[in-house]
Amino acid sequence: MFEARLGQATILKKILDAIKDLLNEATFDCSDSGIQLQAMDNSHVSLVSLTLRSDGFDKFRCDRNLSMGMNLGSMAKILKCANNEDNVTMKAQDNADTVTIMFESANQEKVSDYEMKLMNLDQEHLGIPETDFSCVVRMPAMEFARICRDLAQFSESVVICCTKEGVKFSASGDVGTANIKLAQTGSVDKEEEAVIIEMQEPVTLTFACRYLNAFTKATPLSTQVQLSMCADVPLVVEYAIKDLGHIRYYLAPKIED
């Protein structure tokens, strides 16, 4: 028996919004420690890794490990039927071929349930090696989304250059060149507005804008985003999900032909 309950459907809606542009379907691996999802996007350029800890749920029960392959378009249709403040419960029997998603209004006066067919996706998890990153940048998630959106107008690629002075995002195309520099913030009243750079070595890497923009669909989940970079390895873009877990996106760099 698997049962997981969240106080607000809005969190699940935001999580789905954060992955459904990259993935058509994905396997949710459930164990007593929580829910894990790992999947490459269709073009195998990026990888999404979602971790939801069992202690972040209002109720969590998972008697046997369970892999639930879900069509994310179908899941989006179901979540559209929930009000943001509804409780949401996901339930499945062991070895089931369906999952039930139930919404309850705060006053319990409206209860709806949706049964969704599961898919056998047969996905294998990739092993992600530990990396000592050269640069780790923490910045407001909204600012990162704004920069990715703005620079996508100028080029398919964005160059991220991180030094101890700050982080620079650049794009160059037919229109010309765009550069956006962010300095590390000195002192800020609000932690969520800070730009913090931890640098071991300066690093310059090139990434495809369309994937960065897809990752920023996670912005509503978190006030801050963390970018971890190292020469010739994938960028890690991480959004914390408060009291519940995190979503990480890995993006392969572009290199000189």
């Binding site: 490459m40 350029v45 990888l47 092993g127 390895v233 993006l251 392969a252 572009k254 000189e256």
Partner: peptide, 14 residues
């Protein structure tokens, strides 16, 4: 022009 690498070349298959 730059060449886009695939993500799986950085990770290990089980």
């Amino acid at each position: 022009t730059k060449f886009q690498l695939g993500i799986s070349m950085f990770f290990t298959w089980p």
